[in-house]
Simulated scan of single mutants.
Amino acid sequence: MRESSAAEILPVAVTVNGQVFWWTPTNGLDASVVAQVEGWIQRRAESYLPAAIMRGLDRDDLLQEGRSGALKAARDYDPAFGAGYLSYADHWIRQAMRAALGRSHDVYLAKRARQQAVKDGELPLVLRLDAHLRDEDAALSDLLPAAQPDPQDQAEQAERESALRRALNRLEAIARFMGFIDARRGRCIPFWLPTYSRDMEQSQDASASDLSVRIRNVLYSTHIVQHHNRCDLAFYPLAGAPIFRRITGSAPGGMDHEWITLDQSFGQARATSDWRCISYLSFVRLDQDSLRMVWETDDLLRASFRVKEVLL
């Protein structure tokens, strides 16, 4: 391949009214600068040559790609960029060579797949596919052998699809959570936040119409009741959505229990073993607009952010 001279890098094709003219940029470049760019192209080609050989390219291919990058740099360069032309051209030279290596890598992989097919005894199918590419009237389905699906492959495919559905559900849940937080940024919009702790424990089964619930003694009726922000509860059942209730009254019981009165009954009988936990609801606002999110496991994302309690 004949190498281009320095002067061949500078001209740029410009189309005016449908006619092509060759124009030399008037952005301060001269032949000596372009000659230095040619030297850079040579050095970059040498550095990328081992990778190029593995992908079926040679030195001349790299030189041609490098010169195309230098031509783009000569066409687009403006001293107002704040960088010298040589640095600007080197960027586009490397970009052009890397792009060529990437395209060649795809071809290289295709060749490797064909070689593997020959090694595995699947050459007839590969040859039929080659024939299909040359025959536009051929049906691709006619080239594939009729075979029963492998149960193991079906199971693996089902597992992959299930994993994908779980991942999409997690992304949707994360998007909803981030939307909730974004709407409350600025530290001015309060919201209810459970403590997610076992703050109370029901100690006696409750009927569907009971408003009074017996709980283990946590000194609510004598001490905690004075805190106005400890009147709202979140009941988390073992299955289903949480139930939110407000405490309207309380009374001491024995040494091991006390009573609280709720604003509304549960609507169905509730045993002591029905709850995962009973937590206080705190009325809070964001104390900072940033939050930290860490994946604890593949299915558990922990979000940490600071809040400040708002007195009711």
Rank of each mutant, 00 (worst) to 15 (best):
A6G: 01
A6N: 03
E8V: 04
V12W: 08
V16G: 06
F21G: 10
T26C: 12
N27R: 09
S32C: 05
R43W: 07
R55K: 13
G56D: 06
R59N: 04
E65C: 03
E65Q: 11
A70M: 02
A73P: 00
D90V: 12
I93T: 01
R94T: 06
L109F: 07
A110Y: 06
Q116T: 11
K119V: 04
P124Y: 05
P124W: 06
V126Q: 09
D130I: 15
A138I: 03
P149T: 13
D150T: 04
D153C: 06
Q154P: 02
A158F: 04
A167P: 00
A167W: 08
M178Y: 14
I181L: 13
I181K: 00
I181T: 03
R185L: 10
F191D: 11
Q204H: 05
A206K: 00
R214G: 05
L219Q: 08
L219M: 10
Y220N: 09
T222P: 00
H223L: 15
V225E: 07
D232W: 07
L233P: 02
L238I: 10
L238C: 08
G240S: 02
P242S: 14
R246P: 09
E258I: 04
T261H: 08
D263M: 07
Q264Y: 13
Q268C: 05
T272N: 11
R285K: 13
R285V: 05
L286R: 00
D299W: 06
L300W: 07
L301M: 12
K308N: 13
